[in-house]
Structure formats: structure tokens, C-alpha cells
Design a protein around this nucleic acid. Structure first.
Lengths: 201, 201, 201, 201
DNA sequence: ATGTAAGCGAGACGGTACGTCACGTCTTCAC
DNA sequence: GTGAAGACGTGACGTACCGTCTCGCTTACAT
């Protein structure tokens, strides 16, 4: 019997409040105020702010990302990076995600939900991306997809969400190339010798 | 005239509270309580919780990190990664740093302070590290130190502070190798052709 | 088309709620609940709790009281006092009437309705009672009926509705006698002398 | 340690709210708002609105009224009536007193407090007033002081607080005379005969 | 008998107040 | 003057009702 329009208004308000105040300072009262809604309407839907935020995160992150096959490792990488960059450049996301990730360090439920929603998603993409590259012969079998995800997402996340530096268009292509090289080198050459030998080039 | 013992007690309490509650939920009252001190004692030292936290951040991050010359790019990388990993593995740091970085998105003063303290520090290390590698001939001149920092710190930060995945000892060495490869490839090969040519086929 | 049974149930519930909670705390919700009826059923009949209560007061108080001629002032007085005492002893009345009278001090509509219903009624009784006594020669012409009503109803109302003291059976007769004496003296002897002269008796 | 000025401000606000809204609608929130004070300041002083109101009633009603000896029953009566009329004419009192008396019908604590404070006070005045008149020989021994109080206060309360009719200056003198006559007659003549015999015929 | 209209209950809605708690500010008082 | 203690106003908590309003269901009258 809950009216959908009101649920929507509350959801939007939650996102805005999360961005503006962060999870720590998020208050049901402010959400209701921003949504132009009574507190009861909120409590009728979620029993606590944790519930509310968790559902939101699940919803948003549950949307499976497209992962087309571009035909090459580097193409796939660039595609993934571009998608991720678009998401992280959204001002809401770039405020909310780091905030929730930081909160996750204190709140096991948030940690678990994010683990399930965001990270599992990324892991799956990594597995597929690496798997295809291995099939293509671009990467040696046994390449660790988890480490690959660190390499792929890490630099981008750092630049956009942590250092909050600008992201010139050319940067992404260069980054894709670098990561491809890193992945190739990463497991073909676990010893120092290999890396060094390649350097002089 | 302020009693040093009390100042010290408050400082410790601030760090513990920051880790336990985060910046958003940090309250002077809780700090004073944890330090076993009156609220007045805190306010006599800092005019607000922002002041307090900024001073702590400046203090901690102001300590310049050692950056020895190990003789090779990969050696330098591994050293830097090991230092950074040690810092990020500290439970306090891994709670406080992401929290403050998230808060920085909302609070220009925090952003500025962190920029000055943490990121400038890293940037300098990056410049030195890349500079030396270029001198050694391991990297082509013109390698962008800023992008290098993204590549170096990003994956580690992602794994430790975001994904909160374990960090096996071997992982660091492999990561150092991968990053070295990425840096070498990063600007030597801005085109697809180069990446593909490197695939073991 | 309104169902009579429901109207009746609501009316009863209103009276009970008025007695239990008073006008200030009276709520449509509680009335509906007590009547076992939806709130809509109530609002379809009255637009507000004021409307509702005013209608009830009018109904109840509209019933004209009998005022027989007992043949003597004192007999008439005792009769009237006995009727009034019976009404005020009813637990509902003794709760609702003072409450509404108090509320009347704040609410002109209630004041007006009560004025019309209760007080006009009493005034009329007073006029008739005094008129007959004057005709009989028991009271001097020019006796003020309004002041007489004060003298008649005041002590009884005070004892029953304010002091909430018990009302022994003999009390009423004595009171009737006293009031008769007061009325007789009231205007025959507006000076101190008369009163004092009577005292020694 | 509670600040007296604030206590005073709250007290005034309570009285004003009681007059404006009545006990039933009285809310701590409104009191605090009107006093320009936080709710905590109120709760720090009284644990509930009942406590708050009871204390006020006790304070106000605790002030013992003066009861001089004017030398005659009628003089004493007129004096008492004049005092009572002054109190009941005060708009605050004429709103609050009937309200609390009505509420007393529902709330034993209020009833008890009012009984102790207001009514006991009046009873004592009645005892003294009647006692003196008996000593003077104006009234027969055995005159019931309680019934006397009903006769004295009832008409005045009815006129001022219930009927809310104007009170011309001459009315009080006349009323005092009437009551004196009633008291004299009240116990000297508990039978009809006496009353009738007094009628001027 | 079926359709339409109105009465009805249920309950979601935006409010207000509840009594509690935690907080930053400010005052008071002991040392 | 440095502290602790704590009263102050503020504001959020989660709950309980309130008056209003929107729903379907049912009842009953007219087709």
C-alpha cells in the first residue's frame, strides 16, 4: 500500500543526504525533511538508517555492468576503465562510495554488503576479462584475476576518488596500455631479472 | 601553561576516536571522555574538531618518508610499496585515512590539508623515484611522475584500504614487477600495436 | 443514507470519551476507536470535534426541565435543588459539565452554546421560581432572579462539582431553607443593620 | 545549580500555557518554546507535566490568605467575598482554576493537591469566620462551617467562573447580606415553618 | 440482476509531541 | 589561570497519535 512516488522521493533524498553529509552524519530526520515527507513514511519502509542505506547500495550495485568483448586485452581494459571512470566521475558516486567504504571499516554489515555488491561485481568482470585474454593468448594461464582487478581499478580509483585529480582524456588510453603491459609482465616474469631485462628497451 | 600530559592524552584520544567513530561522528565530548579530561581542556587547545583533526593530520603526515636509492627501479618500487603497505596495514591508519579522504570530498579545508600533507609527499617521492629511473635509463625521459604515483599507490591502496583483502608477502614483489613493466610500457608504447606485440602469443 | 446505528454508537462514544479524557484531550480517533467505527464515519457526520460536541451539548441541554409549583418558595427551592443534585451526581455530568465550562473560557463557540443551553435554562427557572414567590408574597417585588440563581445553584454546584464533597440528604433541606432566608433578606435588608439585628436570635 | 531566572521564565510560561490551552492540551514542548528554553531545562526541574503543574498549584495556593476580624459577620463575609472576587476576576485564575478543577475529576493527584491547597485553605477561613461569629453571638453554636463555605464561595464562583456574568460593585454587599441571613437562618430554622414565617407576607 | 453510488473500514500520509540522549557552548567554582 | 563539573539551547532519536486523504469492499437502491 506504500505509495511509490513517496518511496522514490525518499530514495533520492537519501542519496543526496549521503553525498552531502556522509553516512556518519546521515539522519532520518534530514532525509524526511529533504524528501518533504514525514518521518513515519521513512520508518514504514526501513527500520533504520543502516537498513535504508544497505538497500540502496544493493539496488544500485546490483545492476550488472556490461562487459563486451572488444577483441583485445587492451580494448577490454580501456572499455572497463571508461565505464568505471564515468561512474566515479559522477559527483554523487565520488562522494558516497568512498564514504561507505570508509564506514565499512567500522560496520561489518556495510562491509559485507559492499563486498557482495560492488567488489564481487568487479571480481567477476576481472575474471571474465582475464579469462578472455588468456584464451586469446595475450596472457599466460594462471594470471591472478584478483590481482588484476587491483591493478585495473586501483589507479583509477586513486586518481578520481582519492587524489581527486583531473582525468585528461588521453590518460585513460595510456593507463590501459600500461596495465596491459603490467599484466603481461606480472606473471610471465615473477623474478627481478625479467623486469630489468625489459627496462632498457 | 597548558599541561603537556593532558595535551598528549587528548591527542591519543582523538586518534582512537577518529578510528572508532570516523570524522563525521567524532565529538569533542567523546574525546574528552576518553582522555579522562574536561571539555574545557580540549577547547582551550583547539577551537573546533576541524582544527583539532587538521593539526593531527599535519603532524602525522608531515614526517618525511625515507626514500633510499636501491639502485634499480624495481628495487625502489618494492621499497616504496613495502613502506606504504606497512603504514596502511596499521589498523588506525586503515580506518582514519579513508575516512578523512572521504570527508575531504565535503570539506575543503580537510581536502587542502590532506593534499598538502599526504599527496604532496607522495608526489615528491614519485618525482624522485621516476627521476632516478630516468637517469639510470630504465625509463624514457618524459615519464609522467603523477601518473606513476597513481600506478604505484593505487593498486596497493585499493587492496588494503578498499577491498580490504589480505596481502600475501609475495604479492608485493609481483606488484612491483608489474608496475615496473607498466611504467616502462606506459610511454614507450602509447599505441595498441606495442601491447599486442608483447603478448607471448 | 448514514446508518443510524453507527450514529448512535458514535454519540455514546463521544460522551464516554468526553468524560474520560475531557474536551481538550478528546480526539476523533479515540471516539471512532471506542465506537468500533472508522474515522471517516465520524467525519461524515461532523466536520470537527467542536461541531460534534456542540451538537451533543445542544441535544442534551435542550431538554426543558420540569418546574412544578409546590406552593411555597422553600418547596420550589428544594425541588429545584433536588433535580439539580440528581443531574450533578451523575458521574458523566459531573465530569463533562465542569470540563466544558472550563473550555468555554477559551472557546467562544462553546461558551455561547452553553450560555444558550444550560444557563438560559436555569435563568428561566429562576425567573419562574422567583416570580411565583413574589406573587405569593414570600419575596418582595424587584427581587433579582439572576442573583437568585447564583444563590440557588452556586452552593450546590460548588459542593458537588468543585469540592466534590458528599451531599447528605439533610443537607439539601437545610440548604433550601438557608437560601430562602437569604432571598428574603437579600433585598429586604440591603444594609448591615438588618443583618446584625437578626443575628442574636 | 539550576539557574533561577530560567526557572522563573518556565513558571510564567506554564501559567500562560495553562490559561491558553488548558491542562489537557498543555505540552512541555510548548512551555519550553514559550519560555525560550530547551526541553531539557524543563525536564531537569520536573519529571512530567503533572509534577510541574502540581508544584505550581501548591506554590500559588500555599500563600495563606489574610483573614482580619472586621467586628461583624457581615463585615467578615464582605471582606472574604471581596478577596475571592479579586482572585477570580484575574483572567489567568478564571481560566486555570476551573480547568484544573475539571481535570481533578479525572486525576486523583490533582484532586488531592487542590483539596490540600485550595479547599483546605477555604475551609480554614470558614472555620475561623464562623467561629468568630459564634463567639460574637451572631450565629448559633453548632453552625456547620463546611456548609457555610459552600454558601459563601458557591454563588461567587458560579457567577464569576461558571456563568461568567459581570459582578457589579453593589452585588457583593447584597450577597454578603444575603449569606449572613442564610447562615443565621440556616441552623436556627431547619424546618419550613421558620422560613415561611420570615416571609414578609 | 446488474450497475452505480454512497457508506464504510482500513490505513498511508504529513504533522506534532513525546521523553531521552548527546553534543557544543558557556558559567561556576576548586585548586 | 587551569581544570572539572554541569546547566544551557539545539537537534535527532524512534514512538505514538492526530486529522486528512485515498483506497477497495460492501451495501442498497435504481435500473
Amino acid at each position: 500500500m506504500l505509495r511509490g512516488e513517496i518511496t522514490t522521493a525518499i530514495r533520492q533524498a537519501v542519496v543526496q543526504e549521503l553525498a552531502a553529509a556522509g553516512y556518519g552524519r546521515l539522519s532520518i530526520e534530514a532525509v524526511a525533511r529533504r524528501a518533504g515527507v514525514g518521518k513515519t513514511a521513512v520508518y514504514r519502509r526501513w527500520s533504520s538508517k543502516l537498513d535504508m542505506v544497505l538497500e540502496m547500495v544493493t539496488d544500485v550495485a546490483g545492476q550488472s555492468l556490461p562487459m563486451p568483448d572488444t577483441g583485445s586485452l587492451r580494448g577490454d581494459l580501456e572499455f572497463v576503465l571508461r565505464i568505471a571512470a564515468r561512474a566515479l566521475r559522477h559527483p554523487m558516486a565520488s562522494q558516497i562510495i568512498p564514504d561507505l567504504l570508509a564506514e565499512a571499516a567500522r560496520n561489518p554489515q556495510i562491509a559485507h554488503t559492499l563486498q557482495d555488491a560492488l567488489l564481487a561485481n568487479q571480481r567477476e568482470i576481472g575474471v571474465r576479462l582475464i579469462g578472455r585474454a588468456v584464451e586469446r593468448g595475450e596472457l599466460p594461464p594462471g594470471t591472478d584475476p584478483e590481482a588484476a582487478v587491483d591493478l585495473i581499478v586501483g589507479p583509477l580509483y586513486w586518481r578520481l576518488a582519492v587524489a581527486r585529480a583531473p582525468l585528461p582524456d588521453a590518460y585513460l588510453s595510456r593507463l590501459a596500455a600500461s596495465i596491459a603491459a603490467a599484466l603481461v609482465a606480472g606473471f610471465a616474469a615473477p623474478t627481478e631479472r625479467d623486469v630489468d631485462s625489459r627496462a632498457p628497451a
